Simulated assay, not measured.
Amino acid sequence: MTTERIGPPVTGDERTMLRAFLDYHRATLAMKCDGLTDEQLRLRSMPPSTLTLLGLVRHMAEVERTWFRRVINGEDIPLVWSDSGDYQQAYDPTGSTRAEAFDAWQREVEHSQRIEREAESLDVTGYNARWDQRVSLRLVMLHLIHEYARHNGHADFLREGIDGTVGA
């Protein structure tokens, strides 16, 4: 399996640029996992960290679900892997498979993309209960770009440790 990653445009309106950079970072995470077995995707980094590529994919499914569906769309739904709202559960890949994690992540990405496309503008807001304030779709997209970029850096090191593959 090889992920196609399209570089973001160098010009465009704000929404087009945000959408393209977010999709670019989503594809980067998928690329970092290409060609690995379930066991390799569950390999932990270095002690004491328990970070894994599969855990990152599961975490990003929770991030997509929370920010787009729960915050912007106002859906009253639990997290994917925790009914109690414990985000840390997503990081534990024990018993998880590529198929399970990637299916959940892709479903959440598709929901996110639909919600963003259907939003009237980047000024649409939703309520973030953790922050006890309304936030704009613009902030959500910027936050997710930041979140993916940070975790893609982690994915770089994880992948290099698994099989020596470097670069994006």
Rank of each mutant, 00 (worst) to 15 (best):
T3M: 07
I6A: 11
G7R: 09
G7L: 12
P9F: 08
P9V: 06
P9Y: 06
V10L: 06
V10K: 03
T11G: 02
G12P: 03
D13E: 08
E14V: 13
E14S: 13
R15W: 03
R15N: 13
T16L: 04
T16H: 08
L18D: 10
F21Q: 11
L22Y: 10
L22C: 12
Y24E: 01
H25M: 00
H25C: 07
R26H: 13
T28V: 13
T28W: 07
L29A: 13
L29K: 05
M31G: 09
D34C: 07
D34E: 01
G35H: 04
L36D: 12
L36E: 08
T37H: 09
M46C: 08
P47S: 08
T50Y: 02
T50G: 15
T52L: 02
L54A: 10
V57P: 14
R58W: 03
M60R: 08
E62A: 08
E62V: 11
R65Y: 04
R65V: 04
T66F: 14
T66M: 07
I72H: 06
G74M: 02
G74A: 15
I77E: 11
W81A: 14
S82V: 01
S82M: 06
D83V: 03
S84F: 09
S84H: 02
G85Q: 05
G85M: 01
G85R: 04
Y87F: 15
Y87Q: 01
Y87P: 13
Y87C: 03
A90C: 09
A90P: 09
D92S: 14
D92K: 05
T94G: 02
T94R: 13
S96W: 03
A99I: 03
E100Y: 04
E100F: 04
A101D: 09
F102A: 07
F102E: 13
A104N: 11
W105I: 06
W105D: 10
R107Q: 15
E108M: 12
S112G: 15
S112Q: 01
Q113N: 12
Q113C: 09
R114M: 05
R117P: 01
E118S: 07
E120Y: 00
S121D: 11
L122A: 14
L122Q: 10
V124Q: 07
G126P: 06
G126I: 06
Y127K: 07
N128E: 10
A129M: 00
W131G: 02
D132L: 00
V135F: 04
S136T: 15
L137F: 04
R138Y: 06
L139F: 15
M141T: 05
L142F: 03
H143I: 06
H143N: 11
E147K: 10
R150L: 02
R150W: 05
R150K: 12
H151V: 09
H151P: 12
N152E: 02
N152Q: 00
N152F: 01
F157L: 14
E160T: 01
G161M: 11
I162Y: 06
T165C: 00
A168R: 02
